[in-house]
């Protein structure tokens, strides 16, 4: 749930900035469109990474409770 909200907020931030004519907007419509593939792979790696961090925090909190 938290991961979903984080990703959605990130996405909204991207949309807010990437309007036509700005560098990010142009990069996604570049000639060979390899940039889109890079962006898509980047988003997936980032998303799975955020999930890993969320999981890590969950386990850390549990470990702390175990130690008490």
């Amino acid at each position: 749930m938290k991961t979903f909200i984080t990703l959605t907020l990130l996405f909204i931030a991207c949309v807010a900035h990437a309007q036509d004519g700005t560098p990010v907007g142009d990069a996604l419509t570049g000639n060979s469109k390899l940039n889109v593939v890079v962006a898509v792979v980047g988003v997936i790696v980032l998303g799975i990474g955020i999930w890993m961090f969320a999981m890590d925090r969950k386990l850390s909190r549990m470990e702390k409770r175990m130690d008490k």
Binding site: T3, F4, L7, T29, K33, V36, V43, G47
Partner: peptide
Amino acid sequence: VGLVFCALGLVTGALWARS
């Protein structure tokens, strides 16, 4: 976990749609 993949699908789809 399904919602994580759903979010990734929506964002990657939006980027692809933009191009």
